[in-house]
Amino acid sequence: MSASAELRDITVAVVREKEKPFSIEQARIRGPKDDEVLVRVVATGLCHTDLIVRDQYYPVPLPAVLGHEGAGVIEAVGPAVKDLRVGDHVVLTYGACGHCNPCSGGHGAYCKDFYGLNFGGGELDGSTAIQDPHGHPLHDHFFAQSSFATYALSRENNAIKVPEDAPIELLGPLGCGIQTGAGAVINSLKVGTGSSFASYGAGAVGLSAVMAARVAGATTIIAIDVVPSRLALATELGATHVINSREVDVVEAVRGITGGGVEYALESTGRAEVLEQGIAALAGLGVIGVVGAPKLGTKAAFDINDLLLGGRSIRGIVEGDSVPKVFIPQLVQLYQQGRFPFDKLVKFYPLEEINQAAEDSTKGITLKPILKIG
């Protein structure tokens, strides 16, 4: 029997019905084939995208094994794997084909097959790698990994090698949420020295953006949220100003702090009315990036002349425009130097408490849950 045909017993968290809790179940996963690697998952971040897919904002087929911020140790490799080895520590990130025009240009987050590879519920041909004990398929390949599991398969191009002296149980969120916030600032918006930046939302993504803006040299960094504890943490992480949007007019406050408008902004809440505020508070030639994911079909309104006459821009951003093989190790290095302390955002839970972690995240009690696995 080939390695790819062998089935390994695993434990998984499964979503079986829309808006229903995760269930902890036993399953089986095949071994790696072609350019795949099999990873023993040490820990996986719980991301907002996992929860909106659980609730079917995006129509990923169910039942499904989600999880897309995995980190662990390679246990087996397929015959076409070139650079990774058994025993390597890796962070799992989003899937991309690697050869379409966007991928070839260094923009894998805009891969022509992005939706199929990350939200399709299986391989592009419809097959899955995970099955329940009765042999029934479970939809998987979520973000090319499905890491709410004791073992996960990914391709070599979305398994990012990281130093073995870095705490692997902490690093999973670098594969999506942390990468998204930091990359939006550094790669997409290109926030520069002496500039002004506003983060609409001080969750894990928004606070990652705050930390990145500090690294990038912004001198006015504004965090906007409704939770006082998040705003306090934002100040600790580098925000020069904080705004509680329940207490003041956000647009007036941002204009007052910046002397007329902010140069760069990021919207991570997924709320249309917040995006509208962010657009209104831009300076001339200002740009706002959008990373918050609402339900499909959500629309926002703005005065077209506010964009036209001021030369303002709205920019959609996926995964922080990052080249993960380059950017994730850079974030690890910044963390090890004490310049990007994203560990202050996290709280650990065992996999069996995934529903408590999800509830705490939804209520804003925990910024970034990480599930310890195995």
Score class of each variant (00 low, 15 high):
A301L: 13
A301T: 15
A301C: 13
F302D: 04
F302L: 09
F302G: 11
F302V: 10
F302Q: 05
F302S: 00
F302C: 05
F302R: 05
D303I: 12
I304Y: 13
I304L: 09
I304V: 14
I304N: 14
I304A: 10
N305E: 13
N305V: 14
N305L: 15
N305Q: 15
N305W: 13
D306R: 01
D306C: 01
D306S: 01
L307N: 08
L307S: 08
L307V: 08
L307W: 14
L308Q: 15
L309T: 14
L309Q: 09
L309G: 02
G310F: 04
G310M: 07
G310Y: 12
G311F: 03
G311P: 00
G311T: 04
R312I: 07
R312C: 13
R312F: 15
R312T: 08
R312G: 13
R312L: 09
R312E: 15
S313I: 02
S313H: 12
S313F: 02
S313R: 05
S313A: 12
S313C: 07
S313T: 06
S313D: 08
I314A: 09
I314T: 07
R315W: 10
R315F: 12
R315L: 11
G316C: 10
I317E: 04
I317Y: 07
I317H: 12
I317A: 11
V318F: 03
V318N: 09
E319V: 05
E319D: 12
G320R: 00
G320E: 01
G320F: 00
D321R: 13
D321S: 11
D321H: 12
D321K: 13
D321F: 14
S322E: 01
S322P: 07
S322T: 11
S322N: 02
S322A: 07
V323D: 08
V323Y: 09
V323A: 09
V323G: 05
V323H: 03
P324T: 04
P324Q: 07
K325P: 03
K325Y: 02
K325M: 14
V326L: 04
V326G: 00
V326F: 09
V326S: 02
F327I: 05
F327S: 04
I328A: 00
I328E: 03
I328P: 04
P329R: 05
P329T: 06
P329S: 07
P329K: 07
Q330N: 06
Q330C: 02
Q330I: 02
L331A: 08
L331H: 05
L331M: 14
Q333S: 08
Q333T: 03
L334F: 03
